[in-house]
Amino acid sequence: MRRLAAMVMTLLLLTGCRGREPDELALVRVLGVDGRGPVTLTAVCGGDDQGNGSRGTSTGADFLSALEALPWANEESREELALTSVSYLIVGRDANLEAVLLAVLRDQELAGLSTVWLADQGAAALLRNCEDPAAALALLARQGVKAPTAARALAALWDDGQVELPVLDAGENGMECRGVGSWR
């Protein structure tokens, strides 16, 4: 009986490490990156016809500090930032692609499997005009537009000195692919 009581007490003490309810998560699906110093991030949560399409922007000296400045990253926020579901990374022409890709691959949460897209007019402007970017990008992928993953893009950049990325522009569905652009 004493052992049982000790176990219950231990469990009660350990309840301090509380999990997050799913509706308290800001599940970022699309991350837009503009500028190389300061770096501006545009994060789009939810989407993909599933609602919860909240957005947030932040600016920082570099990619990581901008990431930490996202509205859900501070402790007062009701929602917790979750970057494990970032599937699409949209990079503006003025961004430092190599630094961004390195930061993405080094981050514990950001998956190296997220696909990389190019926005000539800037990621923030493109995302601002699109109601459901995740759904629009998923549609483009289903239509056969091939975008390299962050890992492949960085490998190509290092091996070949350039990487081919699909170029996005505002369109009827919020986004459309305008061809392939080369990043050197």
């Binding site: 998560l25 599940l27 993909d48 599933q50 609602g51 919860n52």
Partner: peptide
């Protein structure tokens, strides 16, 4: 998985659970 390890859940399922 839902409370502590949402990364284990496929994104679409995760969004559905959140909604």
């Amino acid at each position: 998985a839902v409370l502590f390890h949402p990364e284990l859940i496929p994104v679409k399922l995760s969004l559905s659970i959140i909604a």
